[in-house]
């Protein structure tokens, strides 16, 4: 029996969705490739799609992780600025993920997101499109899967390494230039639609 290609689509997919990597979704091999909903496309195509998603969202949010929230090494400050510029262009909110600890006694979903229970933040703020950036890969993957299981949020991941199968759109080796490229694209598209 031929099983159709697994798609990584907004949920809620159910009680315990599978890891996309276990369903045959493969990360792109080339730097200028990306994943859109489980299929490999060019980075440009993925950027188009991400820009569209962010612009058409009711409540888009960017979730910056520790790797960009903390100004810990060269290049981070510029990246942080680029992320803030992107948020402005996309009219997106910013909710940080300052670290990965399971929080005690509770998370304040209005002001932060936690990889162990990301859905609290997404539900609370009615977020329909989100961007993960600066999150260590393991924790991004843990969170992206939970989001797909329990929410209908459309997830976009900027990854400095190889990317995330469990995001609906996944960019690999996403650096400062690429973030700016997406911001420019969004700004241009906004202008066009006016």
């Amino acid at each position: 029996m031929a099983i159709p290609q697994y798609r990584v689509l907004p949920g809620p997919e159910g009680y315990l969705p599978p890891a996309a990597a276990g369903m045959g979704v493969i990360l792109p091999r080339k730097k200028d490739e990306a994943l859109v909903e489980g299929a490999i496309v060019t980075r440009e195509e993925a950027m188009e799609k991400a820009a569209e998603k962010l612009l058409s969202a009711k409540k888009p949010y960017i979730f910056p992780g520790p790797l960009v929230l903390w100004n810990w090494k060269e290049g981070v400050a510029e990246k942080a600025q680029a992320i803030i510029a992107l948020a402005k262009a996309a009219n997106a909110g910013i909710i940080p993920m300052p670290d990965y600890r399971p929080k005690y006694p509770m998370i304040n979903p209005a002001v932060e997101i936690n990889p162990n229970h990301p859905n609290l933040t997404i539900w609370h703020n009615k977020i329909d499109v989100c961007v993960f950036v600066g999150v260590h890969c393991h924790y991004a993957n843990v969170a992206l899967k939970i989001i797909r299981g329990g929410t209908d949020c459309y997830t976009i991941a900027f990854c400095a390494e190889m990317g995330h199968e469990d995001a609906m759109i996944s960019f690999r080796e996403m650096g400062l230039a690429e973030i700016k490229q997406l911001t420019d694209l969004i700004t241009r598209k906004k202008g066009e639609s006016r």
Binding site: A77, Q81, P96, V111
Partner: peptide, 21 residues
């Protein structure tokens, strides 16, 4: 440790939860 490990990236100060600030 490098002294900048506990520095918030410029621009993110406002969104950081109070306990971190």
């Amino acid at each position: 440790m490098k002294s900048d490990l506990w520095q918030i990236s410029p621009g993110f100060e406002e969104v950081m939860p109070a306990e971190y600030r």
